[in-house]
Nucleic acid binder design. Structure first.
Lengths: 212, 212, 212, 212
DNA sequence: TATGAATGAGCTTTCATTCAT
DNA sequence: AATGAATGAAAGCTCATTCAT
């Protein structure tokens, strides 16, 4: 037996149609019923494969979700990097980032839901890895905002961290109300949320009489 | 026999120290490890009672979480109503509501986390009830914002629904970053988030050169 | 403390309205859902009493069913004795017994069902007692049939035991088809079954040509 | 890959030695201690397998009993059809059917007991299915008896239904007295019960003097 | 590449019963 | 005469995972 039987992409295990199929149904089922409420059995039935096959392709149930995370990180970090390093103005770049994260999350809403919600069910180790990855994203974004603050185009009465957490909180709850079949288009949500992001970055709210 | 030994509060079943204790540990464990990853066994061990005792007080595991939801709804709706019906200006009232929901959520962060995260694991029926309750809250808040829009103090380029969803999204993710032991006080977070809420309500962001 | 607080009837524990009520609902529920599928809880809810009350009146769940058995035995043995010791002809007496057991079973069908079906769930000891009681009944009836056989009015190609078992088998399955609300009256079923009983006692069936 | 390793027989799930073994011990234990008083654990211990294995082969405890019912129905309906459609005289056929059902029930007495006694513990749905199946059997038999009545060889003072219920009642209580180790052979019981069946079909009992 | 079979721990829930008051 | 609280065992069932083939 000479040839390698497994083609590995990073540390993701063998690649094949079956594997792809399993990840696809996992995204759907994890999004709809949550990671915990989806059994490996459910996955296999939906994908039309046996449990044996599942465990040939994945080390564990968690490995599937880890892969989904990895994909999303790659995507989002690439998107962030591309925009952040462009030569547009800081605010312009931040608007584009805000819109981009919204539209790309909605475009792959199931994946995004898994990305936003599965954390508490994973092992300590995996959670740690994911948080580290998130921090990277956060830090890159923070740089940009702090640059804007230094340039005087972004408010300084609030920390960059606070501004980021606020916006990304809103984004990570998009699934609570957005329905792809509804009247609002992906583009619109992207524009609206980006607009709101910018509002939070630039505008100290009007002082209320009572507080003056 | 003079006094009834059991006091029932609405439909919540018998009240007693053990019951209270069980709800308390449930709040902690559900918040820390999620509803799904906390077994009735875990609850009982943490509360120091037997499973039989648990099922003496609660119909099911879900009944505990339902009770937590009920409590939170009562609290939040009371808070909303109190502020919304005051005679301050609309913006002032909205700032107070924004601050209130943040500070009261943080003050009882574990309860809030359960409130924000347990939905997908509950029965269809319970989910339906909870969504109905949330809708009530949303509608009351919408009235207020639409009043502000009519008065010309709140932007009209975005719907009230969008503004609400954005802010409450951010709030429902507070647990992603806020740590009670950190340097930021509850008061501060409340003020900051309320400030950001107001920013989203009042300020159309500056038009960027490229988009003019 | 001088006066006896409990009035006991045989070994049945204290008598009271509550007790009677409990036995009544037990008859209904055991008949409808079987002894095993009825919990003490079910009984208490249906009777509107607490479990504590139940265990004040009965030693155990089995004690309730034991009481139902005792009642039925008393009734059936009295009925048998009364008819069997009359001075009518043997066949006449057997017809009356057959009709009597059918009509009185149907008149209290729920009790009869419990009587016919609960045996396998009871303790060895109780089962033993009940079988002994049944044997008494069986033996008394056998005497009568054997008298008929000696007199030449009952067939002798089959044992009295066989004839009894056959008829009582049929009777103990009455609940499989008889509905009190149906078009057939209790009287009619009694007459029909007695008629069939008599047919089995008296008539060697016609020899079939093939067997001659 | 050439041959399929799993052979499915209708909708009964995978076939294997373990599965067969489980059904066999279920027949024994359900017959001896009733369906309700036999736990899945009991079954597994008796069969020497783990509960996991049990649930690999069966969807539920009820599925086992459903399978036992299916088997029995197949057997009995085949037997009935074979005899009913022969060209012997009606009475001769009925005698054969009566004997057949008795001997085959006794030959597989445990299975028969499960068949006769488990109904009340099953789900509404399963009960409904089983009753439908029983009705089919009943109707086929009724045809035959009504033919006999039309031909004048079976009494008409009682309905075919009544005659069937009486006989099958007796048969379904065979286990109340018959012991395979006793002195009476299966053949004999079959002949005796068939003889009694015929007696009920053909003989109006002698009018008693008092009733003439 | 995959499968069918199996494990063993754990799940939520129900049960008959007890007992201090 | 009766209650509310609690127990501890057992119920039916599901789970992620393993492994010989």
């Amino acid at each position: 037996m000479v040839a390698r039987r497994r083609i590995r992409r990073e540390d993701d295990g063998p690649v094949s149609e079956v594997r792809t199929q399993l990840v696809d149904v996992a995204i759907q089922l994890f999004a709809r019923h949550s990671y915990d409420n989806t059994s490996v059995q459910n996955l296999c039935e939906a994908a039309g494969v046996t449990k044996g096959a599942f465990y040939y392709y994945f080390e564990s149930k968690e490995a599937v979700v880890a892969e989904i995370y990895r994909r999303m990180f790659r995507l989002q970090q690439a998107q962030l990097e591309e925009i952040a390093s462009s030569d547009a103005g800081v605010l312009e770049r931040l608007r584009a980032i805000g819109k981009g994260v919204v539209t790309s999350s909605i475009a792959r809403l199931d994946e995004a839901i898994v990305f936003w919600r599965s954390l508490p069910s994973l092992s300590e180790e995996t959670q740690h890895d994911i948080r580290a990855e998130r921090r990277k994203y956060h830090l890159r974004l923070r740089e940009l905002i702090e640059q804007g603050q230094a340039e005087g185009v972004i408010r300084t009465d609030l920390t960059a961290d606070m501004l980021i957490n606020f916006f990304y909180g809103a984004v990570h709850q998009l699934d609570a109300w957005y329905h792809p079949e509804g009247p609002i288009t992906v583009e619109q949500v992207g524009d609206f949320y980006a607009e709101l992001f910018l509002s939070t970055l630039t505008s100290p709210s009007p002082r209320l009489p009572a507080q003056q």
